[in-house]
């Protein structure tokens, strides 16, 4: 198991170098010169050249990439072109917002989806089953910014229950908690839909297994069968899926963060793309990719702990 872990870690290295290279290349292919944007409308070519030199953008590309990679090894992602602040610090300042939002969204979707999926499975083909599964597939089908704007309109404006935007504080304070709700729902709906469908089908599958039939035949109560046996076994794929989803939530929060003015990493990178703030885009993407691959690694390991049939070799 330890060997497996180590090998997976080593595998990560080429992946991360690849991510660094691709994000570097794309950013430098984009038309638009950050020095030009900084200088603003009406700046002289000399000003732009001066800014370019100050930012090191006048050096050859491979040299810039080399500097970037060297810095990366030392945990230095360079400085933002816009704010002149260290990129790593800027990312850290925003990562909590993104990560905690993703966790909340995951929590929301688990709380909604698992009861829904289980109930739907036990009442297969009932009206409840049909409606909730239609709702789930609908949740997968709505553009998330539209959903967010609708939620904001109805729950923050028409009925003023939640603050419309911004992160009002840490999630353990009441004000902060309230500000988490609308963005987490918006972000979590597609995952909830996916998990509900998965829960339903895995519970159904487990219920058809021989040992459940045996338990039933032995006269075990239906509730015990469901909760003690079926749900426990059905949880394995659900947890795996939830872990993978969490990774996507981290990277996919971009739109939700923009709608709700959330001080997260995704929105920061988007504005950096528009501004051509190369170091921020590179650093931010690296950071998200790193989190994503680590999460997947952890899911794999958890998987092994929950399901002893899986062997690492």
């Amino acid at each position: 198991m330890f060997n497996y872990f180590l090998r997976r870690l080593i595998y990560l290295i080429p992946i991360l170098i690849g991510v660094a290279l691709i994000s570097f290349m794309i950013m430098h292919l984009i038309p638009g010169d950050p020095a030009r944007v900084i200088a603003g409308v009406g700046a002289s070519p000399e000003d732009v050249a001066a800014i370019r030199a100050r930012l090191g953008l006048d050096r050859p590309l491979h040299e810039q990439f080399g500097t970037f990679m060297l810095g990366l090894l030392q945990g230095d992602l360079g400085r933002s072109l816009r704010t002149r602040q260290p990129v790593l610090g800027e990312i850290q300042a925003r990562f909590f917002a993104t990560a905690s939002l993703a966790l909340f969204a995951m929590l929301f979707s688990i709380l909604i989806s698992i009861p829904l999926g289980v109930l739907a499975a036990t009442k297969q083909y009932s009206i409840f089953d049909n409606i909730s599964m239609l709702g789930a597939i609908g949740g997968l089908s709505a553009p998330s910014f539209w959903l967010g704007l609708m939620l904001m309109y109805y729950l923050a404006f028409a009925v003023q229950i939640f603050p419309p935007s911004g992160m009002a504080g840490m999630p353990w304070t009441l004000e902060g908690f309230k500000s988490y709700i609308l963005p987490s729902i918006t972000l979590g709906v597609p995952s909830a839909a996916m998990l509900a469908r998965l829960t339903r089908s895995s519970v159904l599958e487990v219920l058809r297994q021989d040992y459940i039939r045996t338990a039933r035949a032995k006269g075990t109560g239906e509730r015990v069968v469901l909760y003690r046996h079926a749900l426990k076994n059905a949880l394995i794929p659900i947890i795996t899926m939830a872990g993978i989803q969490l990774g996507y939530l981290l990277g996919g929060a971009v739109v939700v963060e923009t709608v709700f003015s959330w001080p997260g990493l995704g929105r920061y990178i988007v504005s950096a793309i528009h501004f051509r703030d190369f170091p921020v885009v590179q650093g931010g993407v690296m950071f998200l990719a790193l989190t994503f691959v680590f999460l997947n690694l952890i899911v794999d390991i958890l998987y092994g702990i929950i399901d002893p049939r899986i062997r690492y070799d």
Binding site: M152, A156, S165, G166, S261, R267, S271
Partner: peptide, 10 residues
């Protein structure tokens, strides 16, 4: 607040 509509709601 990047979204104009959100600014108006607030």
């Amino acid at each position: 607040i990047p979204e104009a509509g959100t600014q108006m709601t607030e």
